[in-house]
Design a protein around this nucleic acid. Structure first.
Lengths: 207, 207
DNA sequence: TGAAATCGTTAACAAAAGATAAGGAATAAG
DNA sequence: CTTATTCCTTATCTTTTGTTAACGATTTCA
């Protein structure tokens, strides 16, 4: 699948990227790491392919080795983008993954994307694993805490800032997103319409 | 302090309420529970007293035995309310508590409020405790996951719904809040001004 | 390569929200 | 009991956003 021109990263290389990424939260000894890797799956999504689909329980937590995904809701046939995730970030329809309820949103690859997957089953098995359980439990806690902080910032931005202020903020802190993601997706992410974002951009040019 | 007319709940009774509340996440044996209670502190806030203050690291996670608190930010001298917590819920300036950074918001009692507190120090001690560590680790993970789901719903409401739709939703799911919390606080919570909420209420009366 | 789809901008109008101020009801404080 | 304070509503005016449609430019795809 397109692997001739853009070959998948060698699995070992992918695992190394993953190990570095997860080290922000927990570090594993070589022995532990070898045990852990038994529980991993690998997946490559072509552009527009889905990692999660509305109505289906999201069975995986993903680590993005390469690529990017967008989260979106279907609102009366309209796609409303709520979030993006990029390399070295985790991605999942968390609520669905955690509570085992049908996902309320889609997660779709914005470009060719390589993922390392942990299934919910395997996550439970790791928790029960004598060698790994404690650190996996801790990992689960720390990553959840990490995302709480992200969500908190996000909610605060909606409470405290105007759409224009939210735009200015993201334009400063994450200018890269505008290089990789169509503008009308970003508009949704900011809680406004694409037309409104276009106006804000024009308005703020002169400032 | 007012304990003549509204006596504090007996400590043992408070602990029982706490045990029931925490049982949504993890259950403890009597032995474990006895160990755990050594790490608890107690506090009663009068109306308008603070549990967390901007600029100071929030050292405690609180369980609300009785009463209610509101979270608010100071924006250019204006108080903007971001959230409320009530009985049987946990409350903390999570980002500050987790990351040990100065809180960016205040948490203030809306009425006389009884809290059971776990200090950050004691939380770490419990994690290191042979008997409790594993379950506390799990508790930390599960409560963080719980709040991720709450935050996710909240962000989604900002992305997907109009202020009027958000009002209608809260009015259906949490009518009790209007009985306990001034309306202009709720307006902030919905991301709009008090004047705007007043108009929405008038507008939706006829629907 | 040629047709179709995607994407950003702009315009015009309607709808909603922000800002400010004023008034009255309810509540709290002295 | 009287005076402040708090709170909600209403009015007016300005600003912003939503909606719809149209137009080119770019990209995608057959």
């Amino acid at each position: 699948m397109g692997s001739y021109f853009i070959p998948d990263m060698d699995k070992q290389l992918q695992i190394n990227v993953f190990r570095a990424g997860i080290a922000q939260f927990v570090t594993f000894s070589d022995l532990e790491w070898e045990a852990l890797t038994q529980y991993l799956n690998f997946s490559t999504l072509n552009k527009k392919e889905y990692f999660a689909v509305e109505g289906k329980v999201c069975d995986y937590m993903a680590f993005i080795v390469k690529g990017a995904v967008r989260y979106y809701h279907d609102k009366d046939g309209q796609e409303i983008t709520g979030y993006f995730s990029f390399e070295n970030e985790f991605a999942s329809s968390y609520k669905s993954f955690i509570k085992r309820t049908p996902s309320t949103n889609y997660i779709q690859a914005l470009e060719e994307t390589q993922l390392i997957l942990i299934s919910h089953n395997n996550f439970q098995k790791m928790l029960d694993n004598q060698l790994l359980g404690l650190k996996i439990e801790r990992f689960g806690r720390l990553i959840a805490e990490y995302y709480i902080c992200c969500y908190d910032d996000r909610v605060t931005s909606f409470i405290l800032q105007s759409p224009e202020e939210r735009y200015t903020a993201i334009e400063k802190t994450r200018p890269d997103i505008f290089q990789r993601v169509p503008q009308h997706f970003i508009a949704n992410f900011l809680g406004i319409t694409p037309v409104s974002l276009s106006r804000i951009r024009k308005r703020t040019l002169s400032k």
